[in-house]
Write a protein that binds this DNA or RNA. Structure first.
Lengths: 160, 160
DNA sequence: TTACAGTAGCAGCCTAGGCAGAAATATCAT
DNA sequence: ATGATATTTCTGCCTAGGCTGCTACTGTAA
């Protein structure tokens, strides 16, 4: 049950918390730059944060899982705050990428659906996201990335 | 030069980008909870984001490096936006944890200094931060964490 | 039927970061 | 010394998430 870090020897700049924070910031910034530089997508003004939501709406549709998702479903999947999700969907709806549809059976629910525009933009966005991540992972082999993935899952499991 | 991810087989929920994002959210939330639950610290209302800045101001002081840091120094160290830093320091100053001091040699610069209150609260905050990280890393050995650290550093290095 | 607990979405207020532009100051070239 | 350029900070406007309380709706139990 050895502790990894000790207060005495703790170096914040090399802690996993701060390193992961910086990697995440750099990845989102890189994707944001590419999204706004792409001639097809720049007009939509989609941000990386918005893309993450679109992935869940469109991406899983192609994989055959239940396509009708509510806002609270997305919150659970992404550990998102419900209030934040409302406003995120406002922005996506204003850009014409997503539609809200009140469920008639349970009128508390609002199903979310990607519009044609959203679906059309999706493949290019996905391609960019994959490319950005591959660039960050350059020089690492698949075994290392698999171990990284396992460690991250373990960290989530430790507190979930 | 093998790419790690391919568009066809890409599973967003198991990508390092999203996993790291979730781990980071959970770590910050855990630290926030502990900071606001601690009897000594709850009165200060320090958040995890504010703590990260305090670490750079107080933590490095104890390590003998140059103690007088300007706002832009902090921005470089933390890859922070300058405008965001201004407001962050506003909040820390309002809470009495940090002092601004105009540099007389270069009057554009503002040196930052932790107040007595800030310095007094620091050890407890550091202790909590270390504990939270150790809890997330539970079950991993030091070699794994070292490899994780190396991979994260490599990812940062890959993009400058 | 009514009462009540639980759930979903939403709105207001807070912290928070990115970006662009302004103002003050410093530095450098002429 | 003057003017151009760079640096530092600050401000305004945007996206963005967390929290609390509110409303609408559902399901259940009295």
């Amino acid at each position: 049950m050895a502790n990894i870090y000790e207060v005495k020897s703790y170096d914040p700049s090399q802690s996993v918390a701060q390193l992961m924070g910086r990697v995440r910031v750099e990845m989102l910034a890189a994707l944001d730059r590419e999204l706004s530089a792409d001639p097809q997508l720049s007009a939509l003004g989609v941000t990386a944060a918005q893309f993450v939501v679109m992935v869940r709406l469109v991406g899983n549709e192609n994989r055959g899982s239940e396509s009708r998702k509510s806002a609270s479903d997305l919150c659970k999947e992404l550990s998102y705050d419900a209030g934040a999700m409302t406003r995120m969907i406002d922005r996506l709806e204003k850009k014409g990428l997503v539609r809200r549809m009140r469920c008639m059976k349970d009128r508390r629910l609002i199903y979310l659906e990607a519009t044609e525009l959203g679906r059309a933009a999706y493949p290019r966005m996905l391609e960019m996201s994959v490319a950005v991540q591959n660039r960050f992972l350059h020089g690492l082999d698949k075994a290392q990335v698999e171990q990284l993935t396992n460690i991250l899952n373990r960290m989530l499991q430790n507190v979930g």
